[in-house]
Design a protein around this nucleic acid. Structure first.
Length: 304
DNA sequence: ACCCAGGGGCAAG
DNA sequence: CTTGCCCATGGG
């Protein structure tokens, strides 16, 4: 089996593959080796010192570089955020986290299924869908991710059997909307981020949060800033600790745009994963770093 | 038993 | 633009 090797000293596979961007990877045993999919092809990935290794048939070097966004100027991105102490802490705490480039349809499905689900459960659903409706390409278990047309051809009940719950109806409709060519990813890529979000939201089960996740993790729109329960909690606890209630959603969007700028999606990725794994301030035994080293923020500025 | 999970749709204020 | 309620399922 061919192995592609690429120098990627900073890349952390654990942080990148287990941060809730992608849901098709699972550890091969207890060690730092993962089984998953790149460009629709099954593979195993691991690191040997500074070298990223990808074992799989027909996977090119460019494809791997693109998937892990190794082509981005990460030092430049970090430098742009250097004035924010929490972001500096996050970059340090989950060092090596990189943004992936997911296949857009799989990304849409993953995040439709993410509603009121935990990350491990989304992984489970992804696996169930692959096992039930995917093709066994290259001997890869549990199968390729089913295309829109395949998913549009099965019943809502068959989808529900993948433990989707009420999300099965959304997925049922969304699959048909896409398969019917009411939807083209190429057309979406030509739009600006605001229009692309509005277009994605036409799909059943896709609201502002899911649309932004798709734009960020599949579309490389770094100006998309998904606001989920964790980010609402984080922004409230870290950036506006004195407020009784969190800012409204539109207030938080305005805050994120002003504070984190055009690459706020990258900031969101780091803050989200760092807050959940390192900071974990929602648990009482770990306390919040109360605004230390942070410039005062006038919260009225973000009222709507 | 109870609460929460990377929300969205829909009706109503 | 915001709030309130429901949605189905699994984990802690």
């Amino acid at each position: 089996m061919p192995v592609v090797k690429i120098m990627a000293p900073e890349l952390s596979l654990a942080h990148t593959l287990e941060s809730g961007q992608t849901f098709c990877w699972c550890r091969d045993g207890d060690g730092p080796i993962w089984r998953g999919w790149i460009g629709g092809k099954p593979c195993r990935v691991w690191k040997e010192e500074d070298c990223l290794c990808v074992e799989g048939r027909g996977i090119g070097e460019g494809e791997v570089i693109r998937y892990f966004s190794l082509d981005l100027d990460w030092e430049g991105i970090f430098a742009g955020f250097s004035e924010d102490s929490y972001l500096r802490e996050a970059f340090e705490g989950v060092r090596g986290l990189r943004i992936v480039r997911e296949p857009w349809w799989e990304c849409v499905v993953n995040f439709i299924c993410s509603s009121l689900k935990q990350i491990v459960q989304i992984q489970q659903i992804n696996r169930n869908l692959r096992e039930a409706f995917g093709e066994k390409v290259g001997g890869g278990w549990p199968g390729s991710f089913p295309s829109p047309s395949v998913m549009a051809s099965v019943s809502e009940e068959a989808l529900r059997a993948c433990r989707l719950g009420y999300r099965a109806r959304h997925l049922f409709h969304a699959s048909r909307q896409v398969a019917r060519e009411e939807f083209s990813w190429e057309a979406l890529e030509r739009m600006d981020t605001v229009d692309a979000e509005a277009e994605l939201r036409k799909l059943a089960g896709v609201g502002s949060k899911v649309a932004k996740c798709v734009l960020l993790y599949a579309g490389n729109r770094y100006d998309a800033f998904p606001l989920d329960v964790w980010m609402v909690r984080l922004i409230h606890e870290l950036y506006f600790p004195k407020r009784r209630k969190p800012l409204s959603m539109s207030g938080m969007e305005a805050f994120a745009q002003k504070r984190f700028g055009e690459t706020r999606g990258i900031a969101q990725l780091y803050l989200f994963h760092w807050y959940r794994t390192v900071k974990t301030s929602r648990f009482p035994e770990t306390k919040i770093n109360k605004g230390k080293g942070l410039k005062t923020i006038n919260s009225n500025e973000f009222e709507v």
